[in-house]
Nucleic acid binder design. Structure first.
Lengths: 156, 156
DNA sequence: GGGTATTAATTGCCTATAGCATTGATTGCA
DNA sequence: TGCAATCAATGCTATAGGCAATTAATACCC
């Protein structure tokens, strides 16, 4: 195996490709197992609010990598289901602050829990040695990738 | 580190979680780098046709995990851009067979190539030892997950 | 202080995706 | 032949995304 930077190890690339399929499938499954009927886009919105706290609409849109109108209408739908709240700011009456309701937070918690269960189940199917290996490998890969900006992160 | 099957190693679960974020981001980026302006759903359709050959509409819909009307309209749009062709079957004039055009195949090839470049770049940023470790870990994870049925595979 | 520029959100209009229910065409079978 | 099953297409609804234009509020400048 050479260290040729580009053509490096078609074999390794294949492994990553296969692994990524498996992992994406896990992420998607953890969403479809939810009680409430939540779309991926809606879930992403809730996750951003959960991890960053209440946001004004424009910032939320930037975090999600969508335009303000799109984010606004998303919040309309989520507010209709009482998963987020919208409040006009007092200091600057132009901005609207979007916040997670308890029901919204529950959904994020439940999805994360579900996801962890799936992953733990999969890892449990590996012999401990390979389990550690798998985790170390994934961690290495994640580090090499660097921080994924939220705007590029599909949120799953 | 215990072998407790379920609560197994919150640490490992975290690693997988982080790795999956990184990998999904790679998949998405490889799509947005395409020349033609292709949505994820459209790309999934092209991938199914590329890997399974021409399909009748109902089967294509099943592979994609969508309903026949959805698949049909997707093919309308792709056919309008000449990325797929639709042909009435002669034997059974009820069925419409969807096939990839050369232009459609080009898109699939280009996206795959792009994806491999991104992954190779990331792997190149790791010391060779960790590189092998990462690949082995992902492979192990993929094996433990088992085959992902196409209907559950988001196609990225 | 008053006018203007900027910023934030909203609204209108368009496309794409997805589902359900219905309809139309074709084929298979009794 | 006639009826049931199959396959695709259509009509309608909802979600999700974008751009352009509009409205409301604030900031800045003279």
């Amino acid at each position: 195996m050479q260290e040729s930077p580009e053509s490096a190890d078609a074999d390794l690339v294949d492994a990553v490709l296969t692994g990524s399929r498996a992992m994406i499938a896990v992420a998607v499954r953890s969403l479809s197992g939810l009680a409430e009927d939540i779309t991926l886009a809606q879930y992403r919105t809730l996750v951003v609010l959960a991890s960053r706290g209440p946001q004004k609409l424009a910032d939320l849109a930037a975090c999600l990598g969508v335009t303000p109108p799109t984010a606004g209408r998303m919040c309309d739908r989520l507010a209709r289901r009482e998963l987020v709240g919208r409040h006009r700011e007092e200091d600057d009456r132009r901005v609207v602050r979007i916040s997670l309701t308890p029901a919204g937070r529950d959904i994020v918690d439940e999805a994360t829990r579900q996801r962890r269960v799936y992953i733990a189940e999969i890892l449990a199917g590996l012999p401990p040695a390979r389990r550690r290996e798998a985790a170390a490998g994934l961690r290495a890969f994640a580090e090499a990738t660097g921080e994924v900006p939220d705007s590029e992160w599909p949120g799953v």
